[in-house]
Each structure stands twice: as structure tokens, then as C-alpha cells.
């Protein structure tokens, strides 16, 4: 896909906002972390917010609906997060690529023709599994017992489905109705409040 400057800026501005929301969620995760500490599973506290990580790719794929958009958008979001001072540094660019590829896989298989709830949910599930696989290798999650890993995956999937298959498409539809996504594929079939 040939990227226009306005596409890049639109995705980058949204990535900045999603990055800030994610930062806020990290603090909320801190509270859950404290609650789960006595159970010996504090790391699980961050999982309910995991879907926020995939918001940039879910938003870009749903709005633009073209091959490669998800991977590029997620890498773009990762570069912005690196510039915002994320303590993991450039490693998150690698995570961004994995998340983007994981989310976009199902759309590539369906030739970018279906963007309904089922496909978005399936993309969220696949992305959750792929990122857990990445965590197993890179983050050393293979040292954690299988039942806890299964629980982490289940929570991650629920989070990804709610945030990326329900909230993100609604947000994109809302923006389309507000008339700011004119010219993008998401506008086809969306009832227009202003003009799209």
C-alpha cells in the first residue's frame, strides 16, 4: 500500500493517544497487581489491559483495510512509544512487529474482505496467542507453570476481544460518523451524521 502523509499522521496521532491510555492502564494494572500479590500471581494484573497494546493495529486495519497497514501502524506506534521514553526501549519495535503480524494474519487469509465482529475477534484471539508465544521465548514465560500461563492467555484473549473487537471498531465508527475519516474504507456502510 502507498502511504499518504495524512494516513501516517492520522495513525501516529491515534498511536500517541493509545500510548497515553496504555500508560494510564499500567497504573490501573498496578492496583490489580497489588491485589493479586497475596495469590502469588501479580504479573496477571497487567493482562486485563493487554488489548490496549493491539489498539493501534486494530484501529488501522479496521479504518484503512489494506495489506500491511496493521504491521506498519503497530511499528509506528512502537517507535512513538520508544520516543516517549518506554523503559523497554527499542525492543518494543520488535514486539510491535509481532503484534501487527499476529493481528493482521486473519485479514490476509480472508483477503481483506471481512471486517465484522467475528473476524476482528478472531484476529484478537490469534494475536493474543502469537504474543504469548513471543513472551514464552523472549520474556522467559516458559518458566511459568502451564495452568498460570493458560489463565494469563484466557485473560489476555478476553481483554483483546473486548478492546479490539468491540471498543476499537465502535470508536472508529464513531469517528467516521463525526466526519473525520473521510476517504477511508471504514466510511463505506457507516451511517453519516455529517459527511464522510
Amino acid at each position: 500500500m502507498k502511504w499518504k502523509l495524512k494516513d501516517i499522521l492520522m495513525i501516529a496521532v491515534c498511536a500517541v493517544l493509545f500510548g497515553v491510555i496504555f500508560l494510564g492502564a499500567t497504573y490501573a494494572g498496578g492496583a490489580l497487581y497489588g491485589l493479586l500479590l497475596p495469590l502469588g500471581m501479580p504479573s496477571l494484573g497487567y493482562e486485563p489491559f493487554y488489548g490496549l497494546y493491539f489498539m493501534a493495529v486494530a484501529f488501522a486495519v479496521y479504518v484503512i483495510r489494506k495489506p500491511g497497514v496493521g504491521i506498519v501502524a503497530e511499528i509506528l506506534a512502537a517507535v512513538i512509544e520508544t520516543l516517549m521514553g518506554n523503559f523497554f526501549g527499542p525492543i518494543i519495535i520488535l514486539s510491535g512487529f509481532v503484534q501487527g503480524a499476529g493481528f493482521e494474519l486473519i485479514f490476509a487469509l480472508t483477503k481483506y474482505k471481512r471486517f465484522d465482529f467475528k473476524t476482528m475477534a478472531l484476529a484478537a484471539v490469534i494475536c493474543s496467542c502469537v504474543t504469548l508465544g513471543y513472551n514464552l521465548i523472549v520474556s522467559g514465560y516458559d518458566m511459568i507453570a502451564l495452568p498460570v500461563l493458560a489463565l494469563m492467555l484466557a485473560v489476555r484473549i478476553v481483554s483483546a476481544v473486548v478492546i479490539d473487537a468491540i471498543v476499537t471498531p465502535r470508536l472508529a465508527d464513531g469517528l467516521a460518523r463525526a466526519g473525520v475519516l473521510g476517504g477511508y474504507a471504514v466510511c463505506e456502510g457507516v451511517a453519516k451524521d455529517l459527511d464522510c
Partner: peptide
Amino acid sequence: FGLFVTGYFHGRG
């Protein structure tokens, strides 16, 4: 620390 606690109580061995 969270990973340490998770690994300590729920490690794979």
C-alpha cells in the same frame, strides 16, 4: 518483582 513472585510460587519447576 511481579515476575519473581509469579515464578517463585507458580514456576514450572
